[in-house]
């Protein structure tokens, strides 16, 4: 009980620090300190979560965090300045994947382990987290590939692309309903995962390399929304707040970047823009 209260108060402090951090990041004079404030907020959130009474076994958690921190620091320190955008893309993809995995982990526990059942609200938010997270993951990987030159950087467009996307989107919605109605049949969930991963690829593939910063910004917003949905799955308010902050500010930032490039956000959301820029 007391532990629970400490965790909640610390989450509140972390949330306030995230907001202040983002605010400071928007001004040249305070930007670096703002990033530091937000990093401290993250540290507080992580440390206090370790007090959670559901955590019974710590070794593997510490080992995993240690490995992740070392790899993350080494990659981030070594990457060249010119490669920063693709670095952001790949880290963003990892974040989306993490949301998918947490949601799938909860799904598995509720659908397959004795004594658990899946409520409607939880089922719906698991699905939202999985779909948006998968799109973030493969979308970011394609963006990374395009910037690195691993994939053709030009816009890849085929006829009937929007129709294919629309059909896949409807299919993923239908499968989602089935997941919520029959949580024990994992075939539906596998279908959602597969189509959502494919949708991420198809959303970014028709966009030219020059427009990638806008796409990465949009995908960054998506990963925030995925984290926010995961917050609903776990009933965790700091996930909802931080996720919503990133989701909302990311959309606005994307819009600002679009305006700077003389494009509309609707074009980005639908995919398939950037054809003009490749010839320009």
């Amino acid at each position: 009980m007391e532990r629970d209260l400490i965790i909640k108060i610390a989450y509140l402090i972390a949330s306030v620090m995230f907001i202040i951090g983002i605010k400071m990041l928007g001004k040249t004079s305070t930007a670096r300190r703002g990033n530091f404030v937000s990093a401290i907020a993250m540290l507080i959130a992580v440390l206090v979560t370790l007090l959670d009474s559901q955590i019974l076994s710590y070794t593997e958690i510490f080992v995993t965090i240690l490995i992740g921190s070392v790899i993350g620091t080494v990659i981030a320190q070594r990457v060249e300045m010119t490669s920063m955008p693709e670095m952001v893309a790949i880290f963003n993809g990892f974040g989306g994947a993490a949301s998918v995995l947490v949601a799938t982990s909860e799904y598995w526990r509720m659908a397959h382990e004795a004594g658990y059942s899946m409520e409607m609200v939880v089922g719906v938010t698991i699905i939202i987290s999985v779909i948006i997270g998968c799109v973030t993951l493969t979308g970011s990987l394609v963006a990374f590939g395009k910037l690195k030159g691993l994939i053709n950087g030009r816009a890849v467009v085929f006829s009937g692309q929007h129709a294919v996307n629309a059909i896949l989107f409807l299919a993923v919605l239908a499968l989602s309903v089935l997941v919520v109605l029959q949580p024990n049949a994992e075939i539906w969930m596998l279908g959602v995962l597969a189509i959502a991963l494919l949708l991420g690829v198809l959303t970014v593939i028709p966009i030219g390399g020059a427009d990638m910063p806008v796409v990465i910004s949009l995908l960054n917003s998506y990963s925030g929304i995925a984290a926010c949905a995961t917050g609903f799955v776990l009933n965790n308010q700091v996930l909802i707040i931080a996720g919503a902050l990133v989701g909302a500010s990311g959309i606005i930032l994307t819009q600002i970047m679009c305006k700077a490039m003389n494009r509309s956000l609707v074009n980005v959301l639908l995919g398939g823009f950037g054809q003009t820029s490749s010839s320009a």
Partner: peptide
Amino acid sequence: GSNAISGITIVGAIVA
């Protein structure tokens, strides 16, 4: 910077 914040899923991963 906001991409790093979206890594807040780490909290959910720790609990799970």
